[in-house]
Computed example of a mutant assay.
Amino acid sequence: MDIGIGFAIGIIVACLVLLWILFYFVPVGLWFSALVSGVRVSLIQLILMRWRRVPPRIIVQALIEGTKAGLTLYRNDLEAHLLAGGNVPKVVHALVSAQKANIPLDFRMATAIDLAGRDVYEAVQMSVIPKVINTPPVTAVAKDGIQLIAKARVTVRANIKQLVGGAGEETVLARVGEGIVSSIGSSDSHKQVLENPDSISKVVLNKGLDAGTAFEILSIDIADIDIGRNIGAVLQIDQANADKNIAQAKAEERRAMAVATEQEMRAKAQEMRAKVIEAEAQVPLAMAEALRNGNLGVMDYYQLKNVQADTSMRDSIANRGGDTPSSIG
């Protein structure tokens, strides 16, 4: 009796396992859901999807969603996109949203955008609801030397045709920043920019900054403008300091040259004094030579000495005469 019960339990368990395997490889429930939804897919195709390692539920749900939305989708195309690493549900969501919004988007373009790494469903949503991008603070200087710091809000809409190979948000922000700098830099005065900030938006929009990008710029609004430093005054001060340093360097150079010239002249004066002393030293030698040769007599020598003594006395009297008035006073 116990053996019979155990055998029956074993048979029941084996049947349950077989049923689980059968329903795993033959998703009857999924096939029935597709059938009542108007999607024609056979059980054999669902089994083959299992063998190809393609989740049948993803493909069937995508076909059901597309069929209910009035789209014509093919099972082989969905499987190929899934095997290529694509996101089938997002592609189908994007196609349905694009159809409802009257946006021209076919299956081939949607899969190409998805495989390129962009969120195709978000791109379709951005085409319907534009996105606002806030630029970082952009610093520019007007012609009068006053620095201005501007912030802008860029309203963009996804360009479906340029999503593959088009530049992203970083390029748009860089171009807008460049346009703001160019517009402010061409203004004669910072007051003009503060009075008419919309002039910046007009100039930037006219440049066609969205060319080659994945977005279409709808508007550029200047959110805030702040006054920064007086760059012109700072540059003038720096230039004045540089000129002062150059002038001081040149003056120091001239002073050094003057000191060198003075030292040189002193050296020349000492040299000339040495030559005079040397010349005066030659006089006694010449007189001695003249006495020896008989060209100068003894009386002539004494007469010369008397003349020298008389001259020395006159110089002494003249010096004392010049000092007397000052001493009397």
Rank of each mutant, 00 (worst) to 15 (best):
N76P: 03
K100R: 13
L105C: 04
V88L: 08
M109H: 11
H93Y: 10
L73K: 06
L78Y: 02
L78C: 08
V91I: 09
M109C: 10
H93N: 14
A94G: 11
Y74W: 10
L82N: 03
H93R: 13
A69K: 04
E79A: 11
L95V: 06
G70V: 00
K100W: 00
S97P: 00
V96D: 04
R108S: 15
R75P: 11
A80H: 14
A84F: 12
D106R: 09
V96H: 05
N87W: 05
A80F: 12
G70D: 03
R75Q: 15
V92P: 02
K90P: 01
L78M: 08
G86Y: 05
M109F: 02
N87P: 00
A84T: 07
L95I: 05
L83T: 06
A69Q: 02
P104H: 02
N87F: 03
P89K: 11
L78D: 02
P89Q: 10
R108G: 15
S97W: 09
T72E: 06
L71H: 03
A101G: 00
A94D: 08
P89L: 08
D77L: 09
G70L: 02
L95T: 00
A101V: 00
A84V: 07
L82Y: 12
L82P: 05
N102F: 12
L105I: 01
L73E: 01
A94Q: 08
D77N: 13
L82T: 02
L71C: 03
H93P: 04
L83W: 11
H93M: 11
Y74F: 12
Y74N: 13
K90I: 09
V91Q: 04
E79W: 08
G70N: 01
V88H: 01
T72Y: 00
L95S: 07
M109N: 09
V92Y: 06
R108V: 13
S97H: 13
H93G: 10
R108Q: 15
P104V: 07
N87D: 13
G85S: 06
A69T: 02
P104I: 00
G85E: 02
S97F: 10
D77T: 13
S97G: 10
M109A: 14
F107R: 13
L71A: 01
M109G: 09
V96C: 07
T72Q: 08
P89D: 08
P104Y: 05
V88Q: 02
K90Y: 12
S97K: 14
A101H: 04
Y74K: 10
L78R: 03
R108H: 15
L73D: 02
A101C: 00
D106W: 07
F107Y: 15
L83G: 09
F107I: 11
N87E: 10
L78E: 03
M109Y: 05
M109L: 14
